[in-house]
Amino acid sequence: MRIKEIIVVEGKDDTAAIQRAVDADTIETNGAAISEEIIERIKLAKEKRGVIIFTDPNFPGEKIRKTITQHVPGCKHAFLPRKAAIAKNGKGIGVEHASVEDIRQALANVYEETTEWKEEITFDELVAAGLIGGELAKKRRQRLGERLKIGYANGKQLYKRLRVFQISKETFYAALEQVMQEETDDA
C-alpha cells in the first residue's frame, strides 16, 4: 500500500513502524518541541504532496498534533486507538508499538480538516449523551473516539473534532448507540 501524502510522526521508531506497514515517506518532529525548520518542512510537504499527522494517542502526541494544526492548517489526520498503541510489556504507548494491521487501518480512515462546516452536533447533545460530565464520560469518549476513528479526546476536543472532521449526526449517533450497547453488555 503506497501512501501519497507525507506522514508526520514523532520519531525514528514511528517511521520504522510506518514503513513496515505501508510504503510512505515521513517527517519526524523529534518530540513535542517542534522547531521552525520542521514546521517549514511540513508546510512544504503539505503544498507538494499533502500531509497526514499520525502522532501517539497520548498528551504529547496531541500537543504535537495541535501545534502542527495551528501552523499548517488543512492537514489530514490519522488516529490510532490507545489500546492498539500500548507496548507488549505495558511500558510505553506509541505508534511504534502498533501492529502492521492497526497502522494500515488508521491510515485507511484518515480525516481531513475543514473550516467550512456548519455545526452538526451541539455541545448540549454531548452533555445529554453523557460524554461530558459524569463518571462514565471519559470511558464513553474513549470508546466513541475508537468507533469514529478520531482518537480519544476530552469533552472540548471531542466537540471540536466532530466539527473539524465533519462527523454527521447520523454517524455520531450510530457510534454512540454502539458505545451504549457495549456498556449494557459489560454490565
Rank of each mutant, 00 (worst) to 15 (best):
E5K: 13
I6E: 09
I6M: 11
E10Q: 12
A16V: 15
A17K: 13
I18A: 02
Q19F: 00
D25L: 10
I27H: 04
I34C: 05
I34M: 08
S35M: 04
R41Y: 00
R41F: 00
K46Y: 03
V51P: 02
D56W: 09
N58K: 10
F59C: 12
P60G: 07
P60D: 07
G61S: 08
I64V: 13
I64D: 01
K66F: 03
I68D: 01
V72K: 09
C75W: 00
F79D: 03
F79R: 14
N89Q: 07
G92Q: 11
I93E: 08
A98G: 07
V100C: 05
E101D: 10
R104Q: 14
Q105L: 14
A106W: 01
A106G: 07
A108D: 11
Y111W: 09
E112Q: 14
E112C: 10
E113F: 01
T114R: 14
E116P: 02
E116N: 13
W117H: 10
W117S: 07
E119K: 15
T122C: 00
F123V: 13
D124C: 01
E125G: 02
A129D: 03
A129H: 04
G133P: 07
G133Q: 13
E135R: 15
L136Q: 12
A137I: 11
K138H: 05
K138T: 13
K139L: 08
R140K: 14
R140G: 02
L144H: 04
E146D: 11
K149I: 10
G151P: 10
Y152R: 15
Y152L: 12
Y152Q: 14
G155E: 04
Q157T: 14
Q157P: 01
L158Y: 00
Y159L: 03
Y159F: 05
K160T: 14
Q166I: 15
I167N: 10
K169P: 02
K169A: 08
E170Q: 12
F172I: 12
A174S: 06
A174H: 03
A174E: 04
V179A: 07
Q181L: 08
E182P: 01
E182L: 02
E182G: 04
D186W: 02
A187K: 14
